[in-house]
Simulated assay, not measured.
Amino acid sequence: MIDRSKPKQAPAPDANALGVSEMVALALAVVWVIAIAVQLILSPGAVLTGPLSFLMLLLVVFMPLALIWGIVSTARTIRALRDEAQHLQVAVDAMRHAYVLGQQGGSQPSVEKKLDEIAAAQRKTETALAMFTSRRDTALTVPSADRKAALALPVKRVSDAEPSFALGTPADDLRAPLSVGDFVRALHFPENPEDKAGFRALRLALEDRQTSRLIRAAQDVLTLLSQEGIYMDDLKPERCRPEVWRRFASGERGREIAGLGGIRDRSSLALSASRMREDPVFRDAAHHFLRSFDKTFAEFEKNATDAELADLAETRTARAFMLLGRVTGTFD
């Protein structure tokens, strides 16, 4: 456990106070001056016999005093430096204590969290701008992905020549259509074992006949790609305008829809192309997935708004389509 008490402050030294060394030096200086004075009083004629003798007397008197006070001054400087070093150590300990408390309290957000918030805000802005680049869904009075069907329902026509039998209504006709929100969430697959909403959407999607074919095909190619170390979460495709997705749904191919091939990761493209050439199982799974995506997306586009197309483009299934579409030359 970290001690949260404030570090103790060392007492500030008194610059004018006399230490033990100063007092000892003062006593020695007084003793030396008294000894010289006694010597001069007892034998004055023996000492002062000429100019050279007077100079020697001055050296004998003042040289020891200068040495004593030089030593005392040096000792005092060393003591001051030691006290300053002690105060610096106390200040460093206080700064370290405050830093540890700040880290435990979580008062400062991490740089990674700030970058994630900026990236999320940028994605929301790009999605909002993309909504104004193409058509709107005018068929709904309340535009909600949870209220409308993801795929356009086929119109069943019964010929008069065909007999009808009262054998009951098929189960597919009684089941509610898969919503856009569940469709998009299912194509992204659950994030983790605790993603209850993701598993619920996946279960509903597997109950839909057409969507289940795309889900299983996507699961096959994602499993095969993971064997090469290619994961859709690692790919960051370039954004494409919704109108290009609609042109793809209408049947256009080639360079007119080249913007859909937003995967630029060279390593993933090279590994996928090599696996496509060498592994017939991977090649068949990839072509089956692309056909399923093409057919299902054409039905989804009829009911989808631009924002819903942008959400679909962020799913793992859509990223696999962009990657394999570039490998197979769909955008060439």
Rank of each mutant, 00 (worst) to 15 (best):
W32K: 12
Q122N: 11
D294W: 10
H188R: 09
A98R: 03
K148I: 13
A205W: 07
M56D: 02
P193R: 15
D284N: 03
A201N: 11
G106V: 00
Q122I: 08
A320F: 10
A35M: 08
M63V: 15
A17E: 05
R79P: 09
A15E: 14
H188G: 09
H288S: 03
T296P: 03
F293H: 05
Q210I: 12
D93K: 11
D172R: 11
G105F: 12
G261P: 00
V38Q: 12
L40W: 08
L58C: 00
Q39W: 09
R246L: 13
E117G: 02
H97E: 01
Y99S: 13
V90Y: 14
A313E: 00
D332G: 09
F165L: 12
A270F: 13
R253V: 10
A98E: 03
R255W: 08
A37N: 04
S110C: 09
S144I: 01
E22P: 04
L67M: 04
A120W: 06
R264V: 10
V184A: 12
D14V: 07
A128E: 15
L42M: 10
S110Y: 06
R76V: 03
W69M: 04
V20S: 13
A27I: 06
V30Q: 14
R157T: 15
T169G: 00
K113F: 10
E308Y: 14
L309P: 01
Q103K: 14
G325V: 07
A145H: 08
L167R: 13
R216C: 06
H188N: 13
I41G: 11
P51R: 06
E112Q: 13
S274C: 04
K295L: 14
L269D: 06
G261K: 00
A310S: 04
P7V: 15
Q86G: 10
L260K: 00
L178P: 05
K8I: 15
L206I: 00
A286R: 01
A98I: 03
C240E: 09
L214V: 03
W69D: 01
P51S: 07
L115R: 12
L40G: 03
V221F: 14
R316L: 07
I257L: 04
M276I: 05
G329Y: 02
K124I: 03
A201I: 10
S268R: 05
D284Q: 04
F199P: 00
R239P: 11
I71S: 13
R241H: 11
F165K: 15
A258Q: 09
S144P: 03
E238I: 07
E207I: 00
Q219Y: 11
P11M: 09
Q219V: 02
V180D: 01
R239G: 13
D208L: 01
S267M: 14
A75D: 06
V60N: 06
P154K: 11
L101P: 05
F62T: 00
R82C: 06
A85D: 05
L140W: 05
L323H: 06
P237M: 14
R123C: 10
L202H: 07
R277I: 06
A313L: 01
G198E: 00
L290V: 00
R319M: 05
L26D: 01
A75Q: 10
T169F: 05
S292I: 01
Q108D: 05
